[in-house]
Simulated assay, not measured.
Amino acid sequence: MNGRTALIAVSAATLLGALYYFNTSPSTLTMSPLTSNPSSGIPGLEFHLSQISRSPPSLLVTLRNNNPTTPFALLKWNTPLDPQAANLGLFTLVDEDGKEIPTEGLKVNRLMPPGAEDLVTVAPGTEEAHEVVMDKPWLPERRPAKYKVYVQGTFSGVWDRYGGDLGTGDLEAYVDSPFHGRAFESNVVEMRVE
């Protein structure tokens, strides 16, 4: 057996072993059911959804800072405040029959470091709102229709200070921000489509 044949044999054995392991091992990746109360991995921050239009179907996403003393500066990337939010797979839609509608989860290339337009500051006791139009091709064409909608994901970068206090180094190292990777989850809202 020459070296090339041996390399192919070892690679094939490794691949088959990995496939066997992943197909026979019990899965530890499970989705937790959505609770009835909105929650946040950052105390004081809460996403709230409400419908503002039926045609085209549009949701108002509001991020509230209920913390009485702490401001939060957050990177909008991969949150409902992201201009690409409807394309990122953050929203879960469930139809009247209880069937989840597959949504797009597009990968978006970002320019580094994040710019000022990629940040939002939510001062204590205030809120930031953003409209998300749900007129994407993945939404079923059946009209009229009703869906239960909620959003969940993880924050890319959040700091417990005002955005103006962040330097370029902070933005370049957003994965080192104090609340990077913390989960967010909204309320469930009924969205009507006409």
Rank of each mutant, 00 (worst) to 15 (best):
P113C: 14
A13L: 13
T69H: 12
S55V: 00
L16G: 15
G115M: 07
D95F: 02
E194D: 14
W77S: 11
G157A: 09
A13N: 08
S58M: 04
V189H: 09
A173V: 00
N66F: 05
W138I: 09
L74Y: 08
A18W: 05
P80V: 01
F179Q: 14
P57H: 03
M31D: 15
P57G: 06
V132S: 06
L75K: 03
M191H: 04
P33A: 12
P140W: 11
L75I: 05
S25H: 08
Y150G: 10
S40P: 00
I101W: 04
D176V: 07
G163H: 02
L171Q: 11
F72L: 08
A123M: 12
A13F: 07
P26Y: 01
M134W: 02
P56S: 14
A183R: 12
L7S: 13
P68E: 13
A85E: 10
L81I: 07
T121Y: 03
D160I: 01
A12L: 10
L93V: 08
S53L: 05
P114A: 14
N65H: 02
N78F: 01
R143C: 02
N65T: 03
M1S: 15
V122T: 06
T92H: 04
R161M: 09
R110I: 07
D176A: 14
S55D: 15
P83R: 07
A85K: 09
G169C: 03
D176E: 15
A13S: 10
R143N: 04
G153E: 09
T14V: 10
L59N: 06
A13G: 09
E190T: 13
P114G: 14
L139N: 14
F155G: 08
N66A: 13
T69G: 07
P178Y: 11
P124S: 11
D97A: 08
Q84R: 12
S25C: 01
E190C: 00
G105A: 14
L139P: 06
V122F: 02
S156R: 14
S186H: 10
D170S: 05
N187C: 06
N37V: 03
Y174A: 07
N65W: 01
I42N: 13
P124R: 02
I52T: 13
R64A: 08
T79Q: 07
I52S: 08
F91H: 12
A18D: 05
T14R: 01
L90D: 12
L45H: 09
S40Q: 08
T30M: 03
L15T: 09
L111V: 13
L34R: 08
K107A: 15
P178K: 15
V193K: 07
R4N: 10
M191W: 01
V94L: 07
S40I: 01
K107F: 04
Y21K: 10
A6P: 00
W138M: 10
M112W: 12
V132Q: 05
E117H: 11
D170Q: 06
S36E: 13
A123T: 12
T14F: 04
L75F: 03
V133N: 14
R4V: 03
D82Y: 02
G157C: 06
R142G: 02
P140V: 08
F22A: 12
M191Q: 05
V108S: 05
V108R: 09
L119R: 06
S55F: 01
A123Y: 07
I52F: 03
Y162F: 03
R192W: 11
R143K: 12
T92M: 02
T79H: 06
T79F: 01
N37K: 08
P137T: 10
P102V: 04
Y147D: 13
T92I: 04
Y162D: 15
